[in-house]
């Protein structure tokens, strides 16, 4: 999977590249509008991650260019601009998804995974993880051939973990993924407690034991082995 990250802020760019590479993506970067424009004109990407506020141009123009070129690349907008106003415009232009800074890296992984899945596999995609077999577009999950009976939220939660295998996920990030801006840092644990408990119980019942590790006071981790 080849990605283009358009981000002018060096410190953020580094971390994003690092996190994305860890997840197995091939990442190229563009530090300015001009550079990004050149790259999207010359090369093909599976997904372009665009920061809207660039020193030499508006990221929305890159979205326009990609769309008018009929590019197959998915577009994920990353922005510090106020989400209340720009979200609509970005999505109207044809962006696939939108993340407001600051965001959780794990959330970026999950969104990117979902975006690529939607665009690349037309519903014929499955995820294999240890004993798990998951068909995201059918909302089905199996443990060693046995179906897991999950609620919508539990399934969502499972996909979120699968998008971030081996990563420590803070409970705030998990809560925000499940319930969006409804979550306050003060009560994020309450938001996920029941879902986490049920997902773990259901996995355990099917013999997928010890998949999710709790890191006390910090969060959770989906163990690779």
């Amino acid at each position: 999977m080849k990605l283009l990250l358009v981000e002018d802020e060096e410190a953020l760019r580094q971390t994003l590249v690092e996190a994305l590479r860890e997840n197995g993506y091939l990442v190229e970067v563009a530090v300015s509008f001009e550079q990004a424009y050149e790259k999207i004109k010359l090369y093909q990407y599976d997904c372009v991650l665009i920061d809207l506020t660039l020193p030499d141009g508006d990221g929305l123009d890159l979205v326009r260019t990609l769309k008018s070129d009929g590019s197959a690349a998915g577009v994920l907008i990353l922005t510090a601009r106020d989400g209340l106003d720009d979200r609509v415009q970005g999505l109207d232009l044809g962006a696939d998804d939108y993340l407001t800074k600051p965001f959780h890296l794990s959330e970026l992984n999950a969104r990117l995974r979902a975006l690529l899945r939607r665009r690349q596999f037309n519903g014929h995609h499955h995820i294999v993880f240890r004993d798990l077999l998951v068909w995201p577009d059918l909302s089905e999950a199996h443990v060693r051939g046995e179906p897991l009976n999950l609620t919508r939220k539990e399934y969502d939660l499972l996909l979120y973990f699968l998008a971030n295998p081996g990563r420590v996920l803070t409970k705030e990030a998990v809560a925000e993924h499940l319930c969006g801006d409804a979550v306050d840092t003060a009560d994020s644990f309450d938001f996920i407690y029941t879902h986490m408990k049920n997902l773990r119980r259901k996995l355990q019942e099917k013999g997928a034991d010890e998949y999710i590790q709790t890191l006390y006071g910090v969060g959770y981790k989906l163990l690779k082995e």
Binding site: E9, L12, A19, A80, K101, P102, L105, T170, G219
Partner: peptide, 18 residues
């Protein structure tokens, strides 16, 4: 705009640190 960017950096770095 400007404050969200350093916040985003801090958040991303801390997440990587974890």
């Amino acid at each position: 705009h400007e404050t969200q960017t350093p916040l985003a950096i801090i958040q991303a770095k801390l997440e990587q640190l974890l």
